[in-house]
Simulated assay, not measured.
Amino acid sequence: MTKISKKYGLSLGELIRLNPQVKNPNLIFIGQTIHTSGNSSSTVSHKTNVSANDRDLLARLVRAEAGGEPYDGKVAVAIVVLNRVDSPDFPNTVHDVIYQKGQFSPVANGQINQPADNESRRAVDEAIAYDRSRGYGSLYFYNPEISPNSWLKSRPTTKVIGHHVFKK
């Protein structure tokens, strides 16, 4: 709750007051609705609403970016996109995050247009459904063997899965 209160410019006490359904503010769960204003329609949740078209687009990105990576890495790539959608620092739709200029090489090289495989679709479904913790708050990922991005090296590492390094 502390991170949420900081993100939305609220005191922790104010956030607790807005969320009487939370019995223990030190223990909240992925998918639980947390109100950030007196209007109950203003909520923050780690269950991003994703259309069928965006789900397919995300699965195609996962296949292109993480086709040879372990399943957990595929889920983590999908989580990066979903975390960006939820972040105020990025566009607020899956489509706009994926097509943000210069962000994902499969967009530039056309690999995004290849169909997704079943494992990539499953990884996207899992990321959307519940398991955002595998991303550890990651907003970026890269393969240091093929991408010498010095700016990313300065960011905190959250997880290494296969050939991908995930960063905040």
Rank of each mutant, 00 (worst) to 15 (best):
K159V: 03
Q114P: 00
N53H: 11
A52Q: 13
I4E: 04
D117R: 12
R55P: 04
P20M: 06
H35T: 01
V85A: 02
T2H: 10
N143S: 10
Q21R: 10
N149L: 01
L12Y: 05
L82D: 13
S40H: 11
N92C: 03
G137Y: 02
P106F: 06
P25L: 14
D131F: 02
V160E: 10
T158F: 01
P91W: 10
N143I: 05
S51I: 03
I112E: 02
I28F: 07
R17W: 01
K47Y: 04
F29E: 13
P148F: 05
K101A: 13
V80L: 06
V160K: 09
P115N: 15
K6W: 03
N109D: 15
L152S: 00
E119I: 10
G31W: 08
Q21Y: 03
T33K: 15
T33Q: 12
G13R: 04
P115G: 14
V75Q: 05
S42F: 07
N49Y: 09
G110T: 03
P25C: 13
V124K: 06
K153P: 00
Q111E: 13
R122F: 00
N24G: 09
R17A: 13
H35S: 07
V94H: 14
Q111F: 07
Q100D: 08
D96R: 14
L57N: 11
N92E: 14
I16S: 01
S11K: 01
G135A: 05
T93P: 11
A64G: 05
V75E: 01
V85G: 10
P106Y: 08
F90A: 15
A66M: 07
E69V: 04
R17K: 05
A116I: 12
I16G: 00
R134G: 04
N53K: 15
N24I: 10
M1N: 03
K74M: 14
H95R: 15
V165Y: 04
Y130S: 14
G110F: 04
S87Y: 03
H35N: 15
S150T: 11
S11V: 01
Y71K: 06
E65Y: 08
K167Y: 12
E126M: 05
T157F: 01
S51M: 04
N24M: 10
V81A: 13
V81Y: 06
N149F: 00
K153I: 00
F90Y: 15
S154N: 08
G67T: 09
H35R: 14
A116S: 15
V44Q: 04
I112N: 06
M1D: 03
L57C: 12
S105D: 12
D86C: 07
G31M: 05
H163V: 03
Q111I: 00
P91R: 14
N39W: 04
D72A: 14
D117G: 15
H35A: 11
I16T: 06
S5I: 09
P25I: 07
N109E: 02
N109Y: 09
A116F: 11
N109Q: 08
